[in-house]
């Protein structure tokens, strides 16, 4: 509990300043991100949309710390990100559960690394499995889960360390539309309950409008921010409401630039 209180008190402000990323392809520089600037407030739900190849996943890799070779600054509470840290979690597009571990042990991976006491480990795991609605499947192996269940287990694994910032890389992209709509509501519930900062990359503009406080529209080649559109509608949002549709269409217009 003390951990959670600390999170709520912590000002997990993420500041991205003039970030550029260049890959070398066949010995020629390929600019993937150019001059990205973005401030993300604690507790905000931010979505990043954009065409394939606009560098949105690269941006997440930089924020999570899997790639530290970039220009500019990504500052978390004023400190430059130099690698992965316990205050940031990520859910990849694929669940990436370890097939040789049960749901329970997969979820506990993050705790094991931080050396959590067994009793606390057990409780945290049970809490997070319940949070994503997988109670009863603790002892199941990944091959026994459906795609949606596996992705929920991956969300529980990312949340178990109580990260201040939760990154989601097209987390629902591979799921069927029913499961997707259901998990969107679940994400909303978890976000409201846990008060974490969420940065989600998605292809789905409606998903972005349904969940986010603001939507970042990125443009490709090189990846840069085209527009940041605030969505100040109250939750739960009605996808058929005129306000909702107006925002969705504005984002779609921005994407067609």
């Amino acid at each position: 509990m003390s951990q959670q209180a600390a999170v709520q008190a912590g000002e997990a402000t993420l500041i991205i300043r003039g970030v550029s990323k260049t890959y070398r392809v066949d010995d020629r520089p390929l600019s993937v991100l150019r001059n990205i600037a973005l401030d993300i407030e604690p507790g905000e739900f931010v979505s990043v949309v954009g065409a394939s190849g606009c560098g949105k996943s690269t941006l997440l890799r930089l924020i999570i710390g899997l790639d530290t070779d970039y220009d500019g600054d990504i500052l978390l509470d004023g400190r430059r990100i130099e690698g992965p840290g316990p205050e940031r979690g990520i859910v990849f597009q694929e669940p990436r559960l370890f097939p040789w571990l049960t749901v329970e042990d997969n979820v506990a991976l993050g705790l094991d690394a931080s050396g959590t006491a067994p009793r606390q480990r057990e409780r945290s795991v049970a809490e997070n499995i319940a949070l994503v609605g997988l109670t009863g499947f603790e002892k199941a192996y990944p091959h026994q889960l459906s795609g949606g269940m596996a992705q929920r287990a991956a969300i529980a694994r990312a949340l178990v360390n109580r990260p201040e910032i939760q990154l989601l890389d097209e987390p629902l992209g591979a799921l069927d539309s029913l499961t997707r709509a259901y998990l969107q509501k679940e994400l909303l519930r978890i976000w409201q309950q846990e008060r974490v900062t969420v940065i989600m990359v998605t292809h789905d503009v409606e998903e972005a409008v349904f969940l986010s406080d603001k939507v970042v529209v990125m443009e490709p080649r090189p990846g840069r921010i085209g527009a940041v559109i605030p969505i100040e509608l109250a939750h739960p949002r009605d996808r058929a409401a005129p306000d909702f549709i107006a925002r969705k269409e504005r984002i779609l217009r921005e994407l067609q630039h």
Binding site: P84, P86, R96, L109, A113
Partner: peptide, 9 residues
Amino acid sequence: EVARVMRFT
């Protein structure tokens, strides 16, 4: 990558 993000020992 999962292992790195989870900061495995």
